[in-house]
Each structure stands twice: as C-alpha cells, then as structure tokens.
Amino acid sequence: MADPAPHPALELDERVHQKTRLALLTVLDEAGRADFPYLKKLLGLTDGNLGRHLEALAGQSLVDIQKGHEGRRPRTWAAITPMGRAALAAEMKVLADLVQRFQSAHSGRP
C-alpha cells in the first residue's frame, strides 16, 4: 500500500499562521499601511505584544516598519511587503483547502 499524501495542514506557514500575525498581515493587506495605535486598538494588543509580532514579521521581510513623526509626535507605521502578500495568499489557499476538505468530509452528516 502506498504512503498517503501529506495532510494539507502541514503546509501551514508557522511565520504566518499564529493568530496575531495572521491578523496583522490581513489588516495590512486590506489597508496597505497602518500605524501602531490603529493596529493596537483594532487587534486589542499591548504595546509590547504588538511590537514583538511586528518585529518577527519584519525579521522575515513580511512587513516593513517605518518610524517617523506626524507633527511633533513620533509614529510607527507598518506596511505589508510583496513577500508578505505572497505568504498571506499561500496561507489563505491552504486554509481554504482545509475548509473544503472539512466540508466534503461532513457533507450529508447530521
């Protein structure tokens, strides 16, 4: 008997799949660019938690972090990179495949 094909869940990208990172990439894909306070409030994160996740994504070249000023106030903006968009699209495809597989397995069940 031949070995079964690997389960599609094994294709999930650990850099992206963690829920906060997936949320950040999704928001940045929708918005293009967002500032730190917006992301913090929208996702209900602390400064430290948001900072760590953004640094992790930036370290993988999935987001670009820009620091500057808006008037006299320091600002930090995050933007999704082309590599981040590609990683997000690949993750969404795997998730869609998993949902389809789940629905197929449960169609017709009460």
Results as ranks from 00 to 15, higher is better:
residue 29 D to F: 09
residue 30 E to V: 07
residue 31 A to H: 10
residue 31 A to V: 05
residue 31 A to M: 10
residue 31 A to K: 11
residue 32 G to R: 05
residue 32 G to T: 04
residue 32 G to L: 00
residue 33 R to C: 04
residue 33 R to G: 00
residue 33 R to P: 02
residue 34 A to G: 04
residue 34 A to M: 05
residue 34 A to D: 03
residue 34 A to I: 01
residue 35 D to Y: 07
residue 35 D to K: 01
residue 37 P to G: 08
residue 37 P to L: 11
residue 37 P to I: 03
residue 37 P to N: 05
residue 37 P to W: 02
residue 38 Y to P: 00
residue 39 L to S: 04
residue 39 L to E: 01
residue 40 K to V: 00
residue 40 K to R: 12
residue 40 K to I: 00
residue 40 K to Y: 01
residue 40 K to E: 11
residue 41 K to C: 02
residue 41 K to E: 12
residue 41 K to Q: 10
residue 42 L to Y: 01
residue 42 L to Q: 11
residue 42 L to R: 08
residue 42 L to I: 07
residue 42 L to E: 09
residue 43 L to I: 06
residue 43 L to D: 02
residue 43 L to H: 04
residue 43 L to G: 04
residue 43 L to W: 02
residue 43 L to N: 05
residue 44 G to I: 02
residue 44 G to N: 00
residue 45 L to V: 13
residue 45 L to N: 01
residue 45 L to G: 11
residue 46 T to Y: 05
residue 46 T to H: 06
residue 47 D to A: 10
residue 47 D to G: 04
residue 48 G to D: 07
residue 49 N to I: 03
residue 49 N to P: 00
residue 52 R to T: 05
residue 52 R to S: 10
residue 53 H to R: 11
residue 53 H to S: 06
residue 53 H to C: 04
residue 53 H to A: 03
residue 53 H to F: 03
residue 53 H to Y: 07
residue 54 L to T: 13
residue 55 E to L: 04
residue 56 A to H: 03
residue 56 A to Y: 01
residue 57 L to H: 06
residue 57 L to K: 09
residue 57 L to Q: 10
residue 57 L to A: 09
residue 58 A to G: 14
residue 58 A to H: 10
residue 58 A to T: 12
residue 59 G to C: 09
residue 59 G to T: 10
residue 59 G to I: 04
residue 60 Q to K: 15
residue 60 Q to P: 01
residue 61 S to R: 15
residue 61 S to Q: 13
residue 62 L to R: 02
residue 62 L to E: 00
residue 63 V to I: 13
residue 65 I to H: 03
residue 65 I to R: 14
residue 66 Q to V: 11
residue 66 Q to S: 09
residue 67 K to W: 15
residue 67 K to Q: 14
residue 67 K to N: 12
residue 67 K to E: 14
residue 67 K to T: 13
residue 68 G to F: 00
residue 68 G to M: 00
residue 68 G to A: 10
residue 68 G to D: 06
residue 69 H to G: 07
residue 70 E to F: 07
residue 71 G to R: 01
residue 71 G to Q: 05
residue 71 G to A: 12
residue 71 G to S: 07
residue 72 R to C: 06
residue 72 R to W: 06
residue 73 R to L: 15
residue 73 R to N: 12
residue 74 P to Q: 11
residue 74 P to M: 15
residue 74 P to D: 04
residue 74 P to C: 08
residue 75 R to F: 04
residue 75 R to L: 08
residue 76 T to M: 08
residue 77 W to N: 12
residue 77 W to L: 12
residue 77 W to G: 02
residue 77 W to M: 11
residue 78 A to T: 08
residue 78 A to N: 07
residue 79 A to L: 14
residue 82 P to K: 09
residue 82 P to H: 07
residue 82 P to C: 07
residue 83 M to Q: 09
residue 85 R to A: 14
residue 85 R to H: 13
residue 86 A to H: 05
residue 86 A to W: 01
residue 86 A to G: 05
residue 87 A to S: 05
residue 87 A to V: 10
residue 88 L to A: 11
residue 88 L to D: 04
